[in-house]
Design a binder for these strands. Structure first.
Length: 282
DNA sequence: ATCCAGGAAAACG
DNA sequence: CGTTTTCATGGA
């Protein structure tokens, strides 16, 4: 079985990275093995201290997907600028942002509005099982995530079986809008952050929060700072005290928070966001 | 039952 | 124009 030995200057935590809520298609067995589908590959992987054992894809695929070549120490150091973020960095040592397939990430965050993480996971699993193709692995069946055209050519009724609720027409319309997945990904990738964000928000069901998550998790726009109810709470509690934490998150307040974060944490504020989010349950 | 969850579109004033 | 209401789903 292929193995990657992590260097001492290469911090990485598989559990934190796959558990922090950025991705919805990985499951951890009680024995420590993670199983996930990325593109058309089933990946099996586990970590024992500085050793990664894996199956399903070549080594360079793992290194790219988990951004193992990224100098994480210098990134966390760049925003380690106050006691609260410092505690989060310490608690979540080894957390990395991964490189998700963009189309699947887009659908995931359209499905994420007003939902909790287990529900998002179930919706994405439903879509893959209903519209993807079978991937056999260790005598189990996994499912790839379907192309835009596979969803565009279906009717609203069969998508309804996936329990997306009011998000069904959003996913359907976005699937119709994006005919060529690769070309779309290339186009968004070529744009600077603000322009790419504006472009994503033209899609049905994609607002500021979804756009920022997609740019952060699929396009490595690290200056993106998604603001959800948790991040808003954390920012209000530790950084900006002048909002009433019970009222609705207005567009004005969203912009206010993300601009503060960009200014306070710097060009990797999106990474800082994920550390704040991951440290929230502890 | 009521409230909430990695919100956004539509209706309203 | 900014602000409030509605939307479908399931867990706590």
């Amino acid at each position: 079985m292929p193995v990657i030995h992590l260097r001492t200057d290469q911090p990485f935590s598989l559990d934190l990275t796959l558990n922090c809520g950025q991705v919805f298609r990985w499951d951890r067995n009680p024995d420590g093995w993670w199983y996930g589908v990325v593109g058309n590959h089933v990946i099996k992987i586990r970590q024992d201290e500085s050793t990664l054992r894996f199956e399903g894809v070549p080594e360079h695929f793992i290194e790219h997907y988990f951004s193992l070549e990224t100098d994480l120490n210098s990134i966390t150091q760049s925003f380690d600028c106050d006691p609260h973020i410092h505690a989060a960095i310490t608690q979540c040592h080894g957390l990395r942002l991964i490189r998700q397939p963009a189309w699947e990430c887009l659908v995931s965050y359209i499905c994420a509005t007003n939902s909790n993480i287990p529900m998002i996971r179930r919706r994405i699993a439903n879509i893959a099982q209903r519209f993807g193709h079978v991937l056999d692995f260790e005598s189990r069946q996994f499912f790839s995530f379907p192309d835009p055209s596979s969803l565009a050519n279906t009717c609203s009724e069969s998508l309804t079986e996936c329990k997306l609720g009011y998000r069904t027409p959003y996913v359907l319309e976005t699937a119709c809008e994006i005919s060529d997945e690769k070309q779309w990904q290339k186009y968004i990738n070529s744009l600077p952050y603000e322009k790419a964000r504006h472009e994503l928000m033209k899609l049905q069901g994609v607002g500021p929060k979804a756009a920022d998550c997609i740019l952060l998790f699929a396009f490595q726009k690290y200056e993106s700072f998604p603001v959800d109810v948790w991040i808003r709470r954390i920012i209000n509690e530790h950084y900006i005290q002048n909002q009433s934490p019970n009222s609705m998150l207005t567009g004005w307040e969203y912009d206010m928070i993300r601009r503060f974060a960009r200014q306070h944490f710097g060009q990797y504020c999106g990474y800082a966001q994920e550390y704040l989010y991951a440290a929230r349950q502890k």
